[in-house]
C-alpha cells in the first residue's frame, strides 16, 4: 500500500460528516484477502469501522473469528497497529495501551502531535 502523504481535517466523532456511503473515505485500512467466510458481516463492519476511525488507531482485538481470520502468520489484514492478547482481557489491554500513550506523551517520550489525524 502507498504510504499516506496527504492531509486530513481533524474531526472528532461528533464532527464527522458521514451521511452516506459517498462520504466514506476511499482509503482502505482493512486489506482484502482475509480468511473470513464469504458473506460474513464482520469483515464489512471492520472495514467501515476503520474508515471512521482513520489511521490514528490502535486496535485491541479479543480472541475470536476476526482475530484468527485476519492475522494468519506471516500475513495480516490490518493497516493500523493491532494487538491480540487473549479472549477475556481486550479491555484491560486497551487500558494499558491508552495509559502508555498518555504518560509517554506527558513525559515527552513520544510526540502525539506527529501522529496521523
Amino acid at each position: 500500500m502507498e504510504p499516506y502523504t496527504g492531509e486530513y481535517e481533524v474531526l472528532t466523532m461528533s464532527e464527522l460528516r458521514i451521511r452516506g456511503v459517498r462520504d466514506l473515505p476511499r482509503e482502505e485500512l482493512f486489506a482484502p484477502g482475509h480468511g473470513l467466510c464469504a458473506g460474513c458481516t464482520a469483515g464489512t463492519i471492520v472495514r467501515h469501522l476503520l474508515k471512521v476511525t482513520g489511521r490514528n488507531t490502535v486496535i485491541v482485538n479479543a480472541t475470536g473469528c476476526v482475530e484468527v481470520s485476519t492475522t494468519m502468520h506471516p500475513y495480516t489484514s490490518w493497516r493500523v497497529s493491532w494487538i491480540h492478547v487473549a479472549f477475556e482481557n481486550a479491555a484491560a489491554v486497551a487500558s494499558g495501551v491508552e495509559s502508555a500513550f498518555k504518560v509517554l506523551a506527558r513525559k515527552g517520550l513520544i510526540d502525539m502531535s506527529n501522529q496521523y489525524p
Binding site: V58, V60, I83, V85, A86, N89, A92, V93, A94, S95, G96, V97, S99, A100, F101, L104, L109, I110
Partner: peptide, 10 residues
Amino acid sequence: STIIGASAAG
C-alpha cells in the same frame, strides 16, 4: 494484561 498493552505501546 494491562501492562502487556502498555508495554506493547512502548
